[in-house]
Simulated scan of single mutants.
Amino acid sequence: MRSSIKVLTIEDDPNIVELIDLYMVKIGFQSISAYDGESGLEMFFNEQPDCIILDLMLPKMDGWEVCKTIRLEDKTIPILMLTGKGESYDIVKGLEIGSDDYIVKPFDPNELCARVKAALRRTILSEEYKAELTFSNITVNMQEFKIFVEGQEVKMPPKEIELLHCFASNPNQVLSRQQLLDRVWGYEFDGDPRTIDVHIKRVRDKLASYSSLWSIITIRGIGYRFEEKENA
């Protein structure tokens, strides 16, 4: 799983760019931006973003051409189009040339965040759960939802398996509680963040006898880090 999801905004209004940047960072994403179509394409090729927020009315190259060019290179990256018109023609044309969603200006930034999260949930975040992952003495099979440690299956409910997969996909990286909630429970989760602590305790307890090579470290006030032990 990606340790930091990168969102590229291609928009010529600096006030809108600043607003989007603020909210993308707020929900834990890395935010980069370009102010015209040509620069946006250059950043797409150089920065390899995970999602694109694309304005239609851009200098040098409009959003239609940017979208079509991107789709020739990448068929799956989520593209959300911003339109100031709100006309059905713009929306239909955008969807036909490859955008995944649209939002009409002026927009609620919280709604934009929800749209970005939903688009990502349909693409990279869900795709990465399909693979089998091995780290140290742990194998996580997300197709069958099974955990094997030192060749032995350890029974866990799905959420605990997803949580361990998330950690093992990001070894030695600090993950905040909010990041874990977003990636495991979903971006629409609005329950108690302390559910993370409860599930991590259960994972630790179930794997205590197998964890000689790694540990889930509590980073007080921030979150957790999954790391190999120094004496391993």
Rank of each mutant, 00 (worst) to 15 (best):
R2A: 05
S4N: 12
I5A: 12
K6N: 09
K6A: 10
K6P: 02
K6S: 06
D12M: 02
D12Q: 00
D13R: 08
P14N: 01
P14C: 06
N15K: 10
N15E: 15
E18C: 14
D21Q: 14
K26V: 03
G28I: 01
Q30Y: 14
A34Y: 02
Y35L: 12
Y35S: 06
G37I: 00
E38I: 11
E38S: 03
L41A: 08
F45G: 10
N46M: 13
N46P: 00
E47M: 05
Q48T: 04
D50G: 01
C51P: 04
I52W: 00
I53K: 09
L54A: 02
L54F: 12
P59D: 10
M61A: 10
W64T: 15
C67F: 01
C67M: 01
K68C: 12
D74G: 04
T76W: 02
I77M: 09
I79H: 02
I79L: 04
L82H: 09
T83H: 08
K85W: 00
K85S: 00
G86D: 06
Y89Q: 11
I91F: 02
G94D: 06
D100A: 14
Y102W: 03
Y102V: 11
V104R: 03
P106T: 07
P106H: 06
D108C: 03
D108W: 05
A114S: 11
A119T: 13
L120V: 03
L120H: 07
L120Y: 10
R121V: 06
R121Y: 14
R122T: 03
R122D: 15
T123Y: 07
T123R: 12
I124K: 14
L125D: 13
A131G: 11
L133N: 03
L133R: 04
S136F: 02
I138K: 00
M142C: 02
M142D: 04
F145C: 12
F145E: 05
K146L: 05
K146G: 02
K146H: 07
I147H: 13
Q152W: 12
E153K: 12
K155G: 00
M156C: 01
M156I: 01
P158Y: 05
P158V: 10
K159F: 13
L163K: 04
H165Q: 12
A168C: 04
A168F: 05
N170K: 14
Q179N: 12
Q179A: 13
L180P: 06
F189G: 11
F189W: 08
D190R: 15
I196N: 14
D197N: 11
I200M: 01
K201F: 07
R202V: 06
V203R: 07
L213G: 04
L213K: 14
S215A: 15
I216E: 09
G221P: 12
G221D: 05
G223A: 06
G223T: 01
Y224E: 08
F226P: 04
E227G: 10
E230Y: 15
E230S: 15
N231M: 15
A232Q: 15
